[in-house]
């Protein structure tokens, strides 16, 4: 099929302890997959493995048909990663951070200036673009972190618990920012915030003890309350 991200038979063990076992997942263009699960279920490891940051013990991740861990340098051009860590340099300004990452991705200097300005205004940080990131609030940092992840116009956006530490208002601004970008063809997010995650997703996946225990389109589930019931039932509380 024309899946953009494909995960086949993925296993990962840390120190002999299995963290992910036999994960299979196909994500096609236009999908927004949200991975739910309790702490320690393996969500972060799954996102990091798809992002090529973590080597799988067994199994294959392909991004746009290329094996991610074999051609990681190449594949990284198509991936943007937003994590609960911002990956931003505190003593550089918002603009400098984006310029730096843009250059690391080899974005053309001419285009880069425009891209940076556009992303900064999209994230509503126009007034602060020449301020050091250290002076930013948590929400502003997180928005800038998305801008950072989008600097090279990736087609796959991976989000790992981007909401930790955000208040509801910041969450709303953040949501708009994530949804707005139409260039991104696939979004995969790990979250334990059921309400907000379910609102955004087109497909919900539940991971428990390193295994996918639930994987269904949003349209087949019903509303958020139905999903919460399913979630509680599966996890047994």
């Amino acid at each position: 099929m024309n899946s953009i991200v494909s995960v086949k038979g993925l296993h990962k063990t840390f120190g002999g302890r299995p963290v992910l076992s036999n994960i299979n997942m196909e994500v096609s263009s236009g999908e927004f997959v949200v991975i739910f699960g309790p702490n320690g279920a393996g969500k972060t490891t799954l996102i990091k493995t798809i992002a090529t940051l973590t080597q799988p013990t067994k199994g294959i991740v392909s991004i746009e048909g290329r094996e991610a861990h074999k051609h990681s340098v190449d594949v990284r051009r198509s991936i943007g990663l937003v994590s609960h860590d911002t990956f931003l340099y505190d003593s550089l300004t918002a603009e400098e951070n984006l310029l730096f990452y843009g250059r690391m991705f080899g974005v053309d200097e001419e285009l880069l200036k425009n891209r940076v300005n556009q992303l900064i205004s999209d994230s509503g940080l126009d007034m602060r673009m020449r301020d050091r990131v250290a002076t930013f609030s948590k929400g502003m940092k997180q928005r800038l972190s998305i801008a950072r992840a989008l600097i090279h116009s990736p087609c796959v956006l991976l989000l790992d618990e981007p909401y930790s530490g955000l208040d509801p208002e910041a969450t709303e601004i953040f949501n708009n920012f994530v949804i707005r970008d139409k260039d991104i063809r696939v979004k995969i997010m790990a979250s334990h915030n059921i309400e907000n995650g379910f609102k955004l997703c087109t497909r919900a996946v539940i991971v428990q003890n390193g295994k996918i225990v639930f994987n269904r389109q949003k349209s087949d589930i019903g509303d958020a309350e139905d999903f919460e019931l399913i979630y509680r039932e599966i996890l047994g509380f």
């Binding site: 992002a51 340098v73 990284r76 990663l81 860590d85 690391m104």
Partner: peptide, 13 residues
């Protein structure tokens, strides 16, 4: 700090 090293590793270098 802020795991910038992961940010660098996500770059195609």
């Amino acid at each position: 700090k802020n795991r910038c090293i992961d940010g660098l590793r996500m770059c195609p270098v």
